[in-house]
Structures are given as C-alpha cells and as structure tokens.
Design a protein around this nucleic acid. Structure first.
Lengths: 347, 347
DNA sequence: GTGAAAGCGCTAACAT
DNA sequence: ATGTTAGCGCTTTCAC
C-alpha cells in the first residue's frame, strides 16, 4: 500500500503538504493541489486509518449498539441502522456495530478510541445501561427516551403525539368508543417508554375529546391479536375505533374482527402504529402512523456530530408523527353505536 | 486515558513486558503477569486501537456489507448480522457496517486498513460487485453463491437441498401434484441464485419421485400470494402440495386457499421456506425450512478467520437445511385427487 | 524472563 | 504557500 511519503515523493512536495492538501486545513496553491491529487489517484492512496487515528485522536468511527433480543421489531431496527449509516457516511464517518448483549462493548470501544461516539438504540425507561452511558468518555446519543434524561442526548418518535393524533382522527370522524390495542404485558412491565407515552397520549386526547378509551395490552403474534379483539368487545361493547400499537398482533386483530363479521372501515376504523411494510402484507389497507426510523437514525447522527463539534448540549428531540392513508378510517356505523345516538341528539 | 507507558510504570516493568503480558506472545513469569494485570485493572487500560493497528498492521475489524434495498427480507438480514457480529466478537474482532449502495466502501476500508477482511451479503448470480471483490487486497467471504465462484469464498443455505427436502416430504405423504410458489418474477429475471437453486432442487426431486411439479412465481405481498394460488389451481387442478419460497406472499397464499375452502393440511399440505418469526404470525402453523441466518453468519466469520490465519483456500460452503414441524403436512385427501386414484390402483 | 529502541504512517505545531 | 519534525501509543525485533 502506498503511504503519504510515496505520494509526497511522486508529487514532489513534502508530506505535510500532502496532508494539508487532502484535509483542506490550510490553503494550498491550485497547482500543488493538482499534483497531489494526481499522485493520490495514480498510487491509489488511502490514508492508513490507524495512523490517522493515532495522530489526530479521532477515529472517524461511530459505534452503534443494536438490540438483538427476540421479539424485537427488526424492520424498525434496520431503518434506524440505515439512517445512522447513511448519515454517518455523509459526515465521513464509518459505523461500528455493537450488540446489546455485549455489556463491555461500549466501554471497550470508547476506552480504546475505536469510536469517537456511541449511538444506543432501544433505550428503556429505566434502562440498566444508563449509568454506564453517563460515565462514558465519549459523547453518546440514545434512540429512545428514558425516564431521567439528565445529561443525556435522546431522539425518538413523539409517541405521545402519535397517540393523540390517532385518537383525534378517530374522534373527528365521530367515534365515541375507542380502544388502544397496545404493547404486550411484558413491555408494560418493563416500563417501555414508548408504550407508556403512547398510552398517555391516547388517554389525554380521549379525555380532551370526551370519548371513551379502553386500553388493552396484546401479546405479540396472531393469537395475541385475536384475543385482544375479544377483550375489547367484551370489556367495551360498541367499540368502533381501534388504535393498534403492536405490529406483531396486527394480522390477528384484523382476523379477529373479520371472524365477528366486523368490516374495516365500515364497522370498525383502525389506525396502526407500525412499519409500512408490515401493513402492506395485510389483507386490507391500513392507515398507518409510521415510526420514521431513517429520519430518527439520521437525527441521532446529526446530534453526534454537533457534540463532536464541541457546541451542542445534551437535549431530547422528539420527531413529529404523520398519518399515512385513510383507507381504514370512516365514520362509525349509524345503527347500534352510542356515537350514532349522540349524533342524532346533537342534530 | 492511560497508555501502555502508564501501565509499565505502575507495574514496574518495561512497555514490551506489558505488551507481551497482554498478548501472550512470549512467556511471562506469573508474578510479573499479575502485577501487569493489576495495573491494567487499576488504570482501566485499553490499548489504543489506532496505535495497535499501526504497529501490528491488523485492525481486528471485519467489514460487513449489508443490503438496504427495499423488498429485502430484513429478518434474514438481521440474523446474518447477528451471527457475524457474535462470531466476530468471539474472535476478538469488531464489525464495521457498510451499505451496498456505497460502491466505494469496500475499496476504502480495505485500502485504508480500516478492516482486515470483508463479508458481503446478498450476492447475486452475476453480481456486479464480483470483479471488485476479486480485486480486493483483503480476504473476503460472500454470503450467497454467484455463478462463477472462481477465487471466491462463499457460504449459503443449500437451497437445492431445501427444494429436494420439501418435495420429498410431500411425496412420501402421497402427494402427486405439487407446486412451488417461488420468488418473484423480478428475482428470477435477476438470476437470483437462491431462487434458481430452489427451483432446480424441486424439479430434480419431483422428477426422481415421479410427481408433477408446477413452478409459479409470486409477487411479494398479500395479493401476490392470493394470485399465485389462483394460478396454481388453474394451471394444475388437483394440486395438493405447496412449497412456498416467498415469505412476503405466505399470508396471501393461506388466505387464497381459505377463500376456496381448502384447509391446511387436510386439503393442501404446505412447506414454507421462511424465517420462523413470519411463520409464527400466520393464522395456522406452517412447517418451515428456515434459512439459518445465524449459522451462516457464523460460518462466514469462521471462513474469514481461517483466511486471515493464512491457511484455508477459497471454497464454497453450503449449509444443510432442516424442516421444522409437520403441522401443515398431511396425506392428500382421498377423494378427487389423482394421488388417491393411484394409491387405490397400487393397493 | 525481561528491557531498549526502532519503527508503523500520519497530523499538527513550528518553522520559513 | 510550503517544508521540517516531533510526537501519537503500540508491536516487535534485537540484545541480554
């Protein structure tokens, strides 16, 4: 492999000139720059990453901690990863992959200067890694929002706003009894922050709109979705609007409705918080609030770069949700529902 | 951050002794080793990755090229990634993530000694990256098998064996008319190697068993699956065995059968080549031949390590498939099928 | 079994 | 605008 010395010799300049010509950190005459660039091209020169890191104390690498636990939504994960990698490359950084179940990984890559910064995905409300993250010697950005964000930089979808958005859309079409088919009992038990914020958003908007909102956790998988529909209709008969924040149960929810002869959206309106790919594999089109993984991943990298640049202080950034499509949204049926009765009274 | 000098001073030995004590590359007395290890612990010493790479010409990093094109099966991708990262860590290597749509990425990380080796996923039969891969200055291992493997190291599931396995299981239960609902037209057009090998495996085994095998491509998504069922029954009435090698269409295939009143497995037996997670989200249990992503990822890393070790020559390794469960497998119905008629004649 | 010291290839003062 | 050079922190001969 060619070294910077080879390039300097070929271009007839000193090594520092080559270095500066390549980094742009000091003015170089057009002629010199051209000769350097030519030599670089002819020798196919690439600066040795280790040597550069040693001399400059910057590796130009961001570590990304990815969850591999079963039951995780891989679609979302991949979108985050894609966003992080793409954005990192735009800033001339590479991405090193760490897994969640390598507890020493973050300290190792930080301590060895393998990475300049760390992005951590899938942060829980009371994530056990929080102390370690606060103690890190390199800047870090969390995807997900813990309960206590002191000293931490975080990004996530604004799940509270997502919940409010979903309820608002149902309410303005006249639905008066709605239900949130939410995360599994386990996720709730683990205080999964997104689940709690979603729940609170649904509750708050339901309160503001004066509609009844039942909250039902759903086990992941087909059966979990079917069960959830049973529960909803048993505990709150006449429910006409469903918010499903559990992509693994989504297919089961639709099947459960169909088995009871309930059509979407004629009898029941539906908003899913889910990756679009999953929604696309369903028998009927479903209006979806997507977790914008790419966007969040990119934002995480922007925050990393800001912090590496020196300015920027830890902050929490919540990305505003948007509703895609209205195929599974309609007014509630005019017959049996209380909403219909209310409407008549109002008319 | 503590340096090796700090450790040497704290332990009262020379830097070379620290280095050797840590690498084990030359014998160190137990007493000295203990003092070094103590100093390392107390100072929380981590060798500077760049300095190490510069001095040793080894970065202890493997680059992994991941496809992010839409329509890709993320479940499988994540499994590959998980296997690669886990295995790499067991060999004290880290994994750097590259995306497919960064065409200069591989040359860059190889040329700058950022990575010691490269693993490339999602290799097509006539992958455009093949020339670049052959020209690489570092060893590389492909996940997927191109048509011409000269000079290349490759790993993949043995899709031919998977096709034969699926047909054998159907045939030995008495099915005489089967169909492969396979990859999409696009994948076939792109000469996706796995699709071709699957097809050939199905054909070969069908020929050997003397059963009729119809080959039908399916567009991904729910509708694609429904369509495929229509095509199968139109082109080959009396089909009782289905091999579905298209996880995105799987839900649609089941729905298509149900709409025609065909039960699984009473009327139609089914074998899916799919990630188990997808199969689990389906309304009925489906016998599955899984692409063992973890295993393949691990194997890729073993091959990388062998090549970094000097021994080992490029080779292609095909992982043997296994069938999980038999819930969607049964004998064909005794009434209308030709299989039943044959049986009676034979009896 | 241990130490001294010569690089590895680059960056960034400090020159001019 | 360009050149000289002292490190960056480690590995690995070579020497004892």
């Amino acid at each position: 492999m060619a070294t910077i010395d080879d390039v300097a010799r070929a271009a007839g300049v000193s090594v520092s000139t080559v270095s500066y010509a390549l980094s742009g950190k000091r003015p170089i005459s057009a002629a010199t720059r051209a000769r350097v660039e030519r030599a670089v091209r002819e020798l196919d020169y690439h600066a040795h990453a280790g040597a550069r890191a040693l001399a400059s104390s910057r590796s130009d690498v961001i570590a990304l901690v990815v969850p591999f636990r079963p039951g995780i939504n891989v679609q979302i994960i991949m979108q985050f990863v894609g966003g992080v990698v793409t954005a990192a490359r735009e800033h001339d950084h590479d991405v090193l992959l760490l897994t969640q179940d390598d507890p020493t990984g973050m300290a190792r890559v930080a301590g060895s200067s393998t990475a300049d910064a760390i992005v951590v995905m899938d942060i829980g409300s009371d994530d056990p890694r929080l102390p370690a993250l606060r103690a890190l010697t390199v800047p870090c950005v969390l995807i997900g929002v813990p309960d206590d964000t002191t000293g931490l930089a975080c990004v996530d979808l604004d799940f509270g706003a997502a919940g409010r958005l979903a309820v608002r859309e149902l309410a303005r079409r006249g639905h008066r009894r709605i239900a949130l088919v939410g995360a599994s009992q386990e996720e709730i038990a683990q205080h999964a922050n997104y689940a709690l914020r979603m729940r609170d958003g649904v509750r708050a908007q339901a309160g503001a709109e004066g509609v009844d909102a039942l909250l039902v956790p759903a086990a992941p998988g087909f059966a979990g979705g079917v069960d959830a529909v049973d529960k909803v209709l048993a505990q709150q008969p006449g429910t006409t609007g469903l918010v499903v924040h559990n992509e693994a149960a989504l297919g089961g929810v639709l099947a459960g409705l169909e088995r009871r002869g309930l059509r979407v959206p004629e009898d029941v309106s539906l908003v899913a918080v889910s990756p679009v790919d999953i929604a696309a594999a369903l028998p009927v089109p479903v209006s979806t609030i997507e977790v914008p993984g790419m966007r969040i991943g990119r934002t995480a990298v922007e925050m990393v770069m800001a912090r590496l640049g020196g300015d920027a202080v830890p902050e929490t950034r919540l990305v505003t949700p948007a509703l895609l499509g209205d195929e599974s949204l309609a007014a509630p049926p005019v017959t049996v529902t209380r909403a219909a009765a209310d409407d008549r009274v109002g008319a």
